[in-house]
Design a protein around this nucleic acid. Structure first.
Lengths: 411, 411
DNA sequence: GGCTTTTTTTCGAGCCTCGAAAAAACACTG
DNA sequence: CAGTGTTTTTTCGAGGCTCGAAAAAAAGCC
């Protein structure tokens, strides 16, 4: 059962609330924070005084474009960029990218690198990841002590505690506990996040109006992934990162999927599946890697004329539509963001997708379901990792406060 | 954004925690409560003194079979049965059943009635429901003032706020706001709950070891319904009661479902679908009602010999298996309880079901997924309604406390 | 009957939030 | 430019809550 609320939890929670209000709103005044949190002005005043004194928040006087109003002007509160820093590591197919981000969310350094993820042996892959992180941490411009968190994102399945990569399409290797390895190597708390989950987190921050309580982010790439937010919270499985939308069964016993099973949504809508279908290769053929450029050429061809290419996208749309329909039967319809190379070909996918959804339980409001597309997943994943790490610092490091933290260290 | 924690929330939450600890544990001592809640002995002592003084809890001296131990014996705390009462109304096909339950969870009165739900006009159906409730409330043995909550359960789809029945297989009528009607009629707060959700709630109370954080209750009856508990919490859709497992798509464009669409899981696994298949009737045929006795006879025939009956159950198992597999792809595998008439025929369903699951993403641990069967859904639904209503009283009426409630009334 | 053990209550200290009032900081006005 | 009005922020005392330590209570044990 959930634990009771102790007296000191109260302050911790309300501090967390103030910090998150500032992170969300940009430069809210104390009065605005009081309004959104429902706490009294005196409480907000006391808490923000503490937070400023601890160097977590700053008063921003740079509110130049203030509308001239009577009365004492509001003082905007902002996150102090120097309060901390976080580091993001995004590992994708043949590509490794690292960024250092200040507490206010600005990128202050980054580094990228190509590497052959598909063939690298275990030690080498881990080694390269550690090396690039070490280079960034040794940057003389950076105060290493301020790096409070590392968030690593990867395509594939991670465990539900965000500690390890269990399986990934970008490497034959499995079960690499990246979070533990990073922590041991650098002594900085780390997590290993699923790419689609991070996309969802990023969308929530980018456009909180559209992506607030319930929405779906779908990665249309080599594989099909999903990040799901329900009731404002990231939905993860109980054992794994969950949301293996691509491996819902579209046609029992159907086309061969990369996962070895048959009839998965991905076996019709993944890049390799669209390619296989367009090239009139058997559905039983082993999945092959298809480059982004090839996919773009395929989409162009499909737009040009009727033919197997267009038919391939139609079938992808159908699979995605029935999959979404089944999902909507379970969770009610929600806005969908399509991300990845094939999202750029969403015009080819959409008609069949909508037609399929209309035939399912979720399709009652099929027209009202809205889709957004974003062809480039990498920036989203990094942004999601950054926000993940930053909110961790907010909630777990800064919210407890100095005396609480001091107490913990002693214990 | 979520609201800050005020000072008075603290007491409310901790009172709620103590009450729920007592409801869960039966007759825990103050020391046990302190251990499970993590609060100090002094706090538990203060809170329980209040609750006893308010007549919500009682000290139970009836701890006869206490193991003789040194030291001051523990005093068990129990719910005071007379603190309040709740009323459950379960409306199912041709059957209406009402029960009055005391605060400790014991049934103190009940009444049942047959009625032709399929053909009754709107006003008459509502009228019969109100009449049976009124009769129970007028029982001279009952203190009407103590009835604090009515929970109504129905087969079908309810809205996400548990206020109205949106659609049900037991009547052609739609959109009946039963909760509002009950509240207006009797002045007692009421809810309109989905049957499968209540089954899940009941299972959680009946066997908290097996059904704790993540599990699935599936109703195998005329239609196919599902109640889903994730992370210990009932999962409901954003608009409706959600979890329309029966209308996930099994075969795109396949058999005709009662809902008018094609290829739903229910169109292969609902009673009418099994019957249709066993009788070698076309998959395009309109669904017909099949009695429980007929279904039992069908199952007996299927057990006896190979033939279309056995094949029908096999196909039902396959549909359920692929549906569950897709579900498991999204939420990771969890224990499943099969409830309803066809759960008694689960021996006929299970082999094909397991075989299908094994071909899906969730099937990696296909053997480890365990199934339970319970042929009678009605007692479960009533029990779920009762617990729903009682925990509402716990959390929303008794937890705030008298002075808080007095304050509310004034405001 | 005194001692030990365990549970429960009591009591003062320390925090926290709140409301009211005061202070601060600005615009407007004549 | 001093006075007035307005809005934001801070200050201060009151009231509650939880906690730890100590005391009290209620048994068994010898």
């Amino acid at each position: 059962m959930s634990v009771g609320i102790r007296h000191d939890d109260l302050r911790r929670r309300n501090r967390a609330m103030v910090i998150s209000a500032v992170r969300r709103a940009g430069q809210p005044s104390r009065t605005e924070i009081a309004a959104t949190t429902g706490l009294s002005h005196s409480t907000i005043s006391a808490i923000s005084a503490d937070l400023i004194q601890e160097g977590i928040l700053t008063e921003s006087k740079a509110s130049e474009p203030t509308a001239l109003k009577r009365g004492r002007p509001q003082i905007g509160l902002a996150l102090n960029p120097e309060a901390a820093a976080v580091l993001t590591v995004v590992l994708s197919l043949n590509f490794l990218s690292v960024a250092v981000i200040d507490y206010a969310g600005q990128v202050i350094a980054e580094e990228q690198q190509r590497l052959d993820t598909l063939v690298m042996p275990r030690e080498e892959l881990i080694g390269e990841c550690m090396a690039i992180v070490r280079r960034r941490l040794q940057d003389p411009d950076l105060d290493v002590g301020s790096v409070a968190r590392i968030a690593m994102g990867i395509q594939g399945i991670t465990d539900s505690h965000a500690r390890a990569m269990l399986w990934s399409p970008i490497t034959p290797l499995t079960d690499i506990p990246f979070a533990d390895i990073l922590e041991r190597e650098f002594g900085i708390p780390a997590t290993m996040e699923n790419d689609c989950n991070m996309m969802a987190v990023a969308l929530q921050w980018r456009d909180p109006n559209r992506y607030r309580d319930n929405f779906i982010a779908i990665l249309l790439s080599h594989g099909i992934g999903m990040g799901l937010v329900l009731k404002g919270q990231l939905f993860t499985g109980t054992h794994s990162s969950g949301g293996e939308f691509g491996h819902m069964i579209h046609r029992p016993g159907g086309a061969l999927c990369r996962c070895g099973r048959r009839g998965c949504v991905e076996a019709y809508a993944g890049n390799y599946a669209i390619w296989r279908s367009a090239m009139m290769i058997s559905e039983d053929a082993e999945p092959t890697d298809v480059g982004d450029a090839d996919m773009r050429a395929l989409a162009a061809k499909a737009r040009l004329e009727e033919g197997p290419e267009r038919e391939a996208y139609r079938r992808a749309g159908e699979a995605l539509g029935f999959g979404l329909g089944s999902l909507f039967a379970l969770i009610d319809p929600a806005p969908v963001a399509m991300v990845g190379v094939s999202a750029a070909a969403f015009d080819l996918i959409e008609p069949a997708l909508r037609k399929a959804i209309a035939q399912t339980a979720g399709g009652q409001h099929s027209e009202s379901i809205s889709f957004d597309t974003e062809p480039n997943e990498l920036p989203l994943i990094r942004e999601g990792c950054a926000m993940r790490a930053l909110t961790f610092v907010d909630q777990e490091i800064f919210a407890p406060g100095v005396q609480a933290r001091a107490g913990k260290h002693v214990a």
